[in-house]
């Protein structure tokens, strides 16, 4: 123990701290693409990870199915009742959609903020520490994935694409604590109530929805959806449900806590959303900063 901090070791320690600071500085600056070696390692490890994650998920899914079996009869009855309702709804939907398309054609409006295509993908890994909420997906730039695309499950928005490699990509979940992780949203049914999601409350497991105008009436239980105004996400992707509303500390704006609609943990298959509406090129730099 006497030699614990002898001269040579002290120098090594100091040099390694300098390297640490340099590396953090290098990786903290906004990078649109990762360096080639990083991409290579991510892709190579992703191949191995998919060999582990998918079988593990299949086995886990089998046991979950067994647990579900006992509810099957009840569920089936309810679903059958719903089916009639659905038939009627789908006729209505076709009707409305056709009318909408027609009207849009009249207006000569090609791409709406709502339109998007999806790329299906599977999760193959997740950061083991919960400081980083990153998922690895098995689709990469070869499949048409680009940085900043939204990622959803059928239940709602879960995050956006952070990095893309040729054969895999990394998703930053909405719960990630990174301060550049922001989403422009509004309360469904009332476009006047808008704001940004700019954080995650780890204690309550909910997203922070802030910058709501003070005189707007927000209630618990209302649904929050993306506004499409940030330039990255399409409009009307479900984010979550408001569980708490309060005034912020200066009393100038309101903020709310939003419980994510999608399960941010038990994720297997996701859809990567490709927005149809183009972003105006001049705004590109602003978008990057978001």
């Amino acid at each position: 123990m006497r030699q614990f901090f002898s001269n040579k070791r002290l120098i090594v320690l100091l040099i390694s701290i300098i390297i640490l600071v340099a590396l953090i500085g290098f990786s903290m600056k906004e990078r649109s693409t990762l360096s080639k070696p990083e991409q290579f390692f991510k892709d190579a490890v992703a191949t191995v990870q998919s060999l582990f994650y998918k079988p593990a998920k299949t086995v886990a899914g089998f046991f979950e199915n067994l647990a579900d079996l006992k509810n099957l009869y009840e569920e089936n009855k309810v679903l059958k009742a719903r089916l009639d309702e659905f038939a009627k709804l789908s006729v209505d939907y076709q009707d409305v959609k056709a009318e909408n398309d027609e009207l849009r054609e009249l207006l000569d409006q090609k791409a709406s903020l709502r339109d998007y295509q999806t790329i299906p993908a599977s999760v193959i890994a997740r950061s083991p520490d919960r400081w980083n909420n990153l998922l690895t997906l098995d689709k990469g730039s070869e499949d048409g994935v680009e940085v900043n695309m939204a990622v959803i499950t059928p239940a709602g928005l879960i995050g956006k694409i952070k990095n893309v490699q040729p054969f895999s990509s990394t998703v930053q979940l909405v719960s990630d604590l990174d301060r550049t992780n922001r989403i422009s949203v509004y309360v469904k049914g009332n476009e006047d109530i808008f704001g940004v999601i700019n954080g995650f409350d780890a204690e309550k497991q909910a997203l922070q929805f802030s910058n709501i105008t003070i005189d707007s009436e927000v209630d618990e239980g209302e649904i929050v959806v993306t506004s499409g105004l940030g330039g990255i996400f399409p409009k009307n992707l479900i984010v979550g449900e408001i569980i708490e509303v309060k005034n912020d500390k200066y009393g100038l704006t309101k903020s709310a806590l939003v419980k994510p609609a999608a399960d941010l943990y038990d994720i297997r298959h996701v859809m990567i959303v490709k927005r149809a509406a183009a972003v105006i090129e001049d705004d590109e730099e602003e978008e990057e900063e978001r």
Binding site: L23, F26, S27, F41, K42, S127, P128, N132, D178
Partner: peptide, 8 residues
């Protein structure tokens, strides 16, 4: 490299 954003 694989699981986080920050190297080091």
């Amino acid at each position: 490299i694989i699981y986080t954003d920050f190297i080091g």
